Simulated scan of single mutants.
Amino acid sequence: MTSPVRVSRPMTVAGAAVLLLALGLVALMLAGPSSSADPAASSAAPSDTSVDVGFARDMSIHHQQAVEMSFIVRDRTTDVEVRRLAYDIINTQANQRGMMLGWLEMWGRPKSSGAPPMAWMGHSFTPRGDGSLMPGMATDTELDALRKAKGRAAEVMYLKLMTTHHRAGAEMARAAADAAGTEEIGNLAAGMVRGQQSEIGLMADMLTARGSGA
């Protein structure tokens, strides 16, 4: 089983709050009039090996690191544009992560698995190690370098790492949007593709403005 991605304390607190909110919403849905006492209702949950469950697990980990990187750069620069992007990514991806973990809870599926990363995509991906568990993820060494950087150097490093992260994330989301068996995952994944592609374009412009390419 893969080891968990290291997270900063602020990221952990924010992630926990979002997860509690998501689980609260799930509980309300289960208790509301739309949920029946039909014993067959649980059979509608996607299987443990489904695209939906695999994507929710893997993308939760992927999002976790994007939020962590954004918290790091927020404290390493005073640039308003970069801090605004980091804030948007923290809020968007922490919220999406909470939704996915909430769905796993509602479906009665474990939030982690011994299956290799990306197995739901039919990939035989081998993690490159040093904390990089899936495509696009930064290594622990790269995260440590980001923590040590300041100002313009931190901005450029963050934008490059996040561009790589988003490109892989968008590919994962596109695969899930095409193959998901639930409306929840299909719609969420399609929205991720649009959002991350837009931010990739924004980050390219920001790198150019700082005299660096992606």
Rank of each mutant, 00 (worst) to 15 (best):
V73G: 06
L146F: 03
A27S: 14
E155A: 12
V193G: 00
D52W: 13
A94G: 15
G211C: 14
S198A: 12
S47C: 04
M192P: 03
R84P: 05
G186N: 00
R6F: 01
G108P: 04
G191L: 05
L143Y: 05
A204D: 12
M121Q: 14
N91L: 15
G131V: 08
T2K: 08
S34K: 06
T126F: 09
A180R: 02
Q197K: 09
P10E: 04
M29Q: 13
S34C: 05
G213M: 14
V80R: 10
A154P: 03
N95G: 15
G108C: 03
Q96R: 07
E171Q: 14
V82W: 02
A153K: 12
P10G: 09
T164Y: 00
A173G: 08
L202G: 11
V82C: 03
L133N: 06
T182Q: 12
D178R: 12
K150M: 04
H165G: 09
D178H: 06
M172E: 04
G98C: 04
M157N: 13
G32F: 13
Y158G: 03
S124G: 14
A45K: 12
G24M: 09
E199A: 00
D52M: 13
E183R: 09
I185L: 03
T77N: 11
M29Y: 12
G186L: 05
E105G: 10
I90M: 15
M59L: 13
L25R: 09
G136V: 02
F125C: 06
A40S: 05
L104M: 07
V156G: 15
H123F: 07
P39G: 05
T78F: 05
N187Y: 08
G201T: 07
A41K: 11
A168T: 12
P46K: 10
T163I: 09
M134D: 04
R76I: 00
D52K: 08
R109F: 04
E171I: 02
P4H: 12
K111A: 10
R194A: 15
P110N: 10
S112D: 15
K150R: 15
A177L: 09
T2Q: 09
V193M: 03
L30I: 00
A214D: 14
S8I: 00
A175M: 07
A37Y: 14
A149E: 07
S47I: 01
W120R: 01
A41S: 15
G201S: 05
R174H: 06
